[in-house]
Simulated assay, not measured.
Amino acid sequence: MSTIQVHDKFFIPYLSEEKIIEKVKQLAERINSDYKDKRPLFISILNGSFMFSADLFKFLTIESEICFIKLASYKGTKSSGQVITAIGLDTDIHGRDIIILEDIIDTGKTLSQFLPQVFNQQPASLKIAVLLHKPEATVHPVDIDYTCFSIPNKFVLGYGLDYNGLGRNLSQLYQLKEE
Rank of each mutant, 00 (worst) to 15 (best):
S2R: 11
F10T: 11
F11V: 10
I12K: 14
I12Q: 14
E18P: 04
E29K: 13
S33V: 02
K36A: 12
I43F: 08
S44L: 02
S44M: 03
F52D: 08
S53P: 06
D55Y: 03
F59A: 07
F59Y: 15
E63D: 13
S64C: 12
C67Y: 01
C67E: 08
F68L: 11
F68V: 03
I69V: 15
I69E: 00
K70E: 10
L71S: 10
Y74H: 14
K78P: 02
S79G: 12
S80H: 04
G81M: 11
Q82H: 09
T85G: 06
T85K: 11
I87P: 02
G88H: 13
L89G: 08
T91F: 14
T91S: 12
G95W: 01
G95V: 07
R96W: 00
I100Q: 01
L101C: 05
L101F: 06
D103P: 11
T110L: 01
Q117W: 01
V118H: 04
P123F: 11
A124G: 00
A124M: 09
K127M: 09
A129Y: 05
V130K: 02
A137I: 03
V139L: 15
V142W: 02
I144T: 01
I151Q: 03
P152Y: 01
N153W: 11
K154G: 03
L157C: 05
Y159V: 07
G165Q: 14
R168C: 06
Q172A: 13
Q175C: 12
L176W: 03
E178F: 08
E179I: 10
